[in-house]
Amino acid sequence: MMNQSVTEKKQLMIPRHFIKVLIVSLILLSICIAASLMFGSRTVGWKELLDGLFHPDVQSHGASVVRQRIARTVFCLMCGAALGISGALMQSVTRNPIADPSILGVNTGAALFVVCGITFLNISTAGQYIWLALAGAVITAIFVFGIGSMGSGGATPLKLVLAGAATSAALSSLVMAIMIPRSSVMDQFRYWQVGSVGAGNWDSISLFVPFLLTGVLIAVLSAPALNALALGDEAASGLGVRTGTLRLFAALGGVLLCGAATALAGPIGFIGLLSTHVIRLVVGPDLRYVIPMSALSGAIILTISDVCGRLAGRPGELEVGVVTAFIGAPILILLTMKAKMRAL
């Protein structure tokens, strides 16, 4: 009994290094939020920032600019958090260290359904985008997992990545085949496809919140069982985990988060991959800590990428999807070259 009590206390004890990482991450997040509110086509000073946030009676131009940027910043933080958690769930479900919604083709599936909706159903609102994108993300995820599970050995990390890459290439071809003969569809779809948080507003945020909360709840509930799954299917089953049900449940959370973010901001890639890899290196493999920290790091990476895009594209802006691809693609190449494609 004494040993059991000590073990339970150790399990409940939060590692000291996690607290340090959390504090540093919150400081970085605060800096990113301030930068997002201050920098853009017009740079505002600290006084204007404070007036815009805490003094609604002040109606200066700088304070008004800050207020206009609040919704975009909140939307950016939510998208980054959603993509970060989605990446953590995808990597854990597939036991693949380079799994990511964009690499597994989920983003492309969402994009295909959105372009079909624009072309054949004349959709044009975020509320319509979100349901089509979710349907496309779910169907693509099921298809990729099905293809990756065929043959001997089941769904191995390498097979899933190959299935995702092949599926993404095929769906991208379908997207282009639908768009090219229709210039009006191409104009409407092109801006969304690049990936941008510039259209983020309070209406988008209100649409996003239910999906974000549902996905976060699924991730938190799945974390202990996913830790057991990391030991292997046989060991997890021996501990009472229903591996098939767990994978379906956790994958649903990842697809919900990724699909909703993709519907509202476009297919922004590499956030889930980058944020989760950084966090695993810092806090270890325990998903009870990886999931919340992936949310924080995803929000930080996407927000700083948005700020960099605004600064690089002055007086306009460089879309955040371009910035994350520019940063993420070389890192993915390095990971692929160095990784031995082993399971997590």
Rank of each mutant, 00 (worst) to 15 (best):
G62V: 08
H61M: 13
G40T: 08
V74E: 00
N122D: 12
T108C: 06
F75Q: 09
F113T: 13
G52D: 06
R72D: 07
S30V: 13
M78E: 05
G151S: 05
C79Y: 01
D57E: 15
L112G: 06
I118F: 04
F75E: 01
A88C: 07
S149Q: 07
G154N: 05
A35F: 14
A133D: 03
P157G: 10
V66R: 00
A133R: 11
V106C: 04
Q68V: 02
R69H: 07
S152I: 12
I147L: 15
W131N: 13
N96Y: 02
G148Y: 02
T73L: 08
L134P: 05
V66L: 09
L134E: 04
S124Y: 12
T73C: 15
A99F: 01
M38G: 06
L89D: 04
Y129A: 03
G136N: 12
S64C: 02
A141M: 15
M150N: 00
F143A: 15
K47W: 00
F145I: 06
S30R: 01
L53M: 13
A88G: 07
C79F: 04
G105N: 09
N107C: 09
L89Y: 04
I118V: 15
L53W: 08
T94Q: 02
N107M: 07
S60L: 04
A99L: 07
A81N: 09
N107G: 10
G40Q: 01
G151L: 00
G109I: 11
G136V: 08
A135R: 07
L89R: 00
Q128T: 11
I118D: 01
G148E: 04
L29R: 07
V65M: 12
Q68N: 15
A110Q: 02
I33E: 02
P56R: 03
C76K: 00
I27C: 14
I130H: 05
D57Q: 15
M150A: 14
W46A: 13
T119I: 14
G136S: 13
I123M: 11
V106F: 14
R42D: 10
L112C: 11
I98C: 07
G117H: 09
A137K: 03
I70R: 07
V138T: 15
L50Q: 11
L104I: 13
T94R: 00
A88K: 01
V114H: 10
T73D: 03
L28Q: 09
A137Y: 03
I31Y: 03
